[in-house]
């Protein structure tokens, strides 16, 4: 019964053809699917996607290895020389070291400061986006799977959250909590979880209506397994896109808050704080103190957005070729 070929043709197939026919009628060798690899390939074959990826990877590496790349540790007061303050790009210090991007008002090498600032910015961005993603996804999944009152409650909460400007919420929170990396991450998570919740709920509602979820229920699998093993993994593509974009947004929001002086403490300067530091010297002609950290911030955000844009095209089934 299982071997259809033999059933149909006992004895009638010329022996010379048997192997070839069996091959043609057996399972056709489809190319192995590697969705992740294919997605990455498709991001990289697009020029803008490639540029974005290069920028992001370069900046990530720079931030990660800031300790080894940076010519000086900008927060070690012992190595700073106040006499070197506000040197223009390319000047040499008394000790013979070249400040390629100039120094700030503390005599700090700007290149080193940017690398360390980048590290803080990226860490805050990824950490806050990651935590918000987990919280938001759980809320969205619960909302979609159970529906009814729980759904209404969560979604109204999301509506309220989204109706306030994020910067306002963050300002108020930081005014209450005070400064610190942990505090700013909390503020960013509070302003961002709602985006993830809404994305996951939308995707999960679509998935819940598909018959493989019916099949899972028919197989008496518990709700926990149905949501986590079946629904959630299928919500990942839109979630990845939102997460990429949100990291960029978190970085820029953090920079804004730090620029306003209520984000990170001076001891752990991020890019925003560096820009803010140089701001007062802009008009006196010492442009580099603000501009170089600004360019770094710009590159980071544009890079992430380019990658995110391309990912959205690749992962959105509507644009699939």
């Amino acid at each position: 019964m299982t071997d259809l070929t033999t059933e149909m043709k006992q004895g009638t197939i010329p022996p010379e053809l048997a192997a070839e026919i069996a091959a043609a009628n057996s399972f056709p060798p489809e190319p192995p699917a590697r969705p992740v690899r294919r997605a990455i390939k498709r991001v990289l074959t697009d020029p803008l996607g490639l540029v974005g990826t290069l920028i992001v990877v370069l900046l990530l590496l720079a931030a990660l290895f800031a300790h080894w790349i940076a010519p000086q540790n900008p927060y070690d007061l012992a190595v700073l020389d106040i006499m070197d303050n506000r040197l223009s790009p390319g000047s040499e210090s008394f000790s013979g070291m070249t400040y390629w991007l100039g120094t700030d008002d503390q005599g700090r090498d700007l290149f080193s400061a940017i690398l360390y600032g980048l590290r803080t910015s990226i860490f805050v961005g990824i950490a806050s986006a990651g935590i918000a993603l987990v919280i938001g996804s759980v809320m969205g999944l619960v909302s979609a799977y159970f529906g009814g009152r729980i759904d209404t409650l969560v979604m109204r909460l999301v509506d309220i959250q989204l109706s306030f400007p994020p910067i306002l919420v963050a300002l108020i929170l930081l005014a209450i909590l005070g400064q610190g990396v942990d505090k700013i991450i909390v503020a960013l998570v509070v302003t961002q979880w709602a985006y993830y919740a809404r994305t996951v709920r939308g995707a999960a509602l679509v998935e819940r209506g598909r018959t493989y979820v019916d099949a899972a229920r028919c197989l008496a699998l518990p709700s926990r397994m149905v949501t986590l093993n079946h629904i959630l993994p299928n919500c990942l593509p839109p979630l990845i896109v939102v997460a990429t974009m949100r990291v960029a947004y978190a970085v820029s929001l953090e920079a804004t808050l730090s620029f306003l002086g209520i984000g990170l403490p001076v001891t752990e300067p991020s890019l925003g704080l560096l820009i803010s530091n140089g701001n007062k010297y802009m008009l006196s002609g010492d442009w580099w103190i603000s501009v170089f950290p600004g360019v770094a911030l710009l590159l980071l955000i544009v890079g992430i957005n380019l990658v995110g844009d391309r990912l959205r095209d690749v992962l959105n089934p509507k644009f699939k070729d």
């Binding site: 043709k9 197939i13 010329p14 026919i21 009628n25």
Partner: peptide, 10 residues
């Protein structure tokens, strides 16, 4: 059609 054909010949 030959791989599915009951009357297949060389």
């Amino acid at each position: 059609f030959h791989p599915r054909c009951p009357y297949v010949q060389l």
